[in-house]
């Protein structure tokens, strides 16, 4: 069945359709939070602008570059497995996984600096949104890394082929969603004022 869906029906979404239900549901949840952030800000502009200045834009931008590069590595992993190259696929996905680790490390330093300054979700509305949005996203990065790790292990064992790569596409699609959401989150929370 997987072979059929991969090689014949090009109109279908990449990977398992179930992951797309999950992706759309997650996008909806983040979308509601993004819009709630924007409308709450409209009621407290000075507070939001002042609090936003305390964020580290450089680490936010570096994390954006890290995630888009990681997403690119995932694309190359999918391209490799479409040619039946399991080891090459595993190498590209390992690169994506490691960059996910870099993102997590940078984000943890950022969270640590906020907690060290006694900033919590109850400090004010801006930080409530900043911490909840970025932590919610952070959890998705961790989940994506677990998914990538499982795929990498299977690819290393030669578990995929040029005719059976639904699992790789499924994991890569989830990883791209993580990137897609950060692309909106970064300018919204760190930049636009």
């Amino acid at each position: 069945m997987n072979e059929h869906s991969n090689t014949i029906n090009q109109d279908d979404l990449p990977g398992d359709f179930a992951i797309w239900i999950f992706i759309f549901a997650e996008m909806l949840a983040f979308g509601v939070l993004f819009v709630a952030y924007a409308f709450t800000r409209a009621q407290n502009i000075e507070l939001f602008n002042a609090s936003q200045l305390t964020l580290n834009r450089t680490s936010g931008a570096i994390n954006t570059l890290v995630l888009i590069t990681s997403s690119y590595f995932a694309v190359r992993g999918v391209e490799a497995i479409k040619r039946g190259l399991n080891q090459q696929c595993a190498h590209w996905l390992t690169g994506a996984f490691l960059l996910g680790g870099v993102f997590v490390g940078i984000k943890m330093v950022e969270f640590q600096s906020k907690f060290a300054a006694d900033i919590t979700m109850s400090t004010n509305n801006f930080y409530m949104f900043y911490l909840s949005l970025t932590f919610f996203h952070f959890m998705h990065v961790l989940m994506g890394m677990v998914i990538l790790a499982v795929i990498i292990m299977k690819a290393r064992r030669g578990g995929y082929s040029a005719h059976d790569y639904v699992g790789v596409e499924t994991g890569a699609s989830f990883w791209h969603m993580v990137d897609f959401l950060w692309i909106i989150l970064f300018p919204l929370v760190y930049i636009i004022r």
Partner: peptide, 13 residues
Amino acid sequence: LVANYFMGLRRTK
């Protein structure tokens, strides 16, 4: 760009 090219949606419905 991410949706159409990285996610590969440009080849879908």
